[in-house]
Design a protein around this nucleic acid. Structure first.
Lengths: 163, 163
DNA sequence: CTCAAAGGTTGATGGAGTCAATTGTTTATG
DNA sequence: CATAAACAATTGACTCCATCAACCTTTGAG
């Protein structure tokens, strides 16, 4: 194939490697092929996510936090769930964001145990710039023929809906 | 898993002002829509990559190293390039993998400055199991109708070829 | 031979992540 | 009602990841 495919070709697309699913064997085969290719492309692209976050002087995780904190106030524990990490980790994470004036801890009135996180004005502004940058499509998408882009978009819309 | 779908909708798919015709300005709009959706789905999936690596008692980065180290011996500096991180970081990384008997440093004979990294037998075995696990398609792929899976696979094949 | 450049290591420092233990606040139960 | 259990957040100890600056050895060019 091409120069890239070596890093995932030998163990990757092996149809029906085990008895794992109860579904039809053919479905799993195509799904695995699609996933393997998707995974490879994405992994190459995700390599520069740290650099992207660094454009805003954010760590990758801080960028992720800002992304989640967009719409509504979140409790610390909810954020820990989104990040699938320990609650104690979120404490330090928010400490640093708060020290930079991007985020604010606000005690909940219904339940005085929880602290709600809200973006400051500066935090919301930074998030806006970050999101615009994050959603710039990478080259492997812009280089596609438009019909592929449309098909990809529609497939992803359906996948999101049934999730 | 739940409560996710709202986190990417407000700044994300903005059709960039222009009317989306078949021209190049319209192409960018569709590309951005496709990318935004893809990005969101992928980011939710990537959240549990640490857990996946942990099934093999590996950190995410160690899993990435094992993946890269599949076929051929790599110099430390080459690995640092792949990981796009500092060379001094690789030292400790390889130290820990070597201490677990997964990787071996081997001095190059052409250039006695460089050290080549090779998988041990145990390392290769672990890598095999890891790769098989990594390429198991996630639910958002297996839940697709098969024609979407086929279309997705073909789109990704074309994208890889023209990369 | 001399000296600069390259490959790798070391030490200092800081963010990210976990676990165990603690404090303060609900909520459930006897 | 009183007390125990559950929960939210924090702290402290510890490990890994990551960077930078300084260093040593080897290489290669002049």
């Amino acid at each position: 194939m091409n120069g890239y495919s070596d890093s995932h070709s030998e163990q990757a697309v092996r149809p029906s490697g085990g008895p794992s699913g109860g579904t039809e064997a053919g479905e799993v085969g195509v799904a695995q092929q699609a996933w393997t290719l998707l995974f490879s492309l994405l992994h190459t692209h995700m390599r520069n996510f740290p650099a992207l976050a660094a454009e805003f002087e954010l760590s990758p995780v801080q960028a992720h936090v800002l992304r989640q904190l967009g719409e509504e106030a979140l409790a610390m524990s909810t954020l820990a769930n989104y990040l699938s990490c320990d609650a104690s980790n979120v404490t330090g994470l928010v400490d640093r964001l708060e020290a930079r004036g991007l985020v604010e801890r606000r005690s909940s009135e219904q339940d005085r145990r929880v602290k709600m996180l809200v973006l400051t004005e500066a935090g919301a502004a930074l998030r806006g710039r970050l999101m615009a940058r994050m959603f710039e499509p990478p080259e492997f998408v812009t280089a596609m023929p438009e019909e592929d882009q449309v098909a990809l978009r529609d497939i992803m819309r359906r996948a999101l809906k049934t999730q």
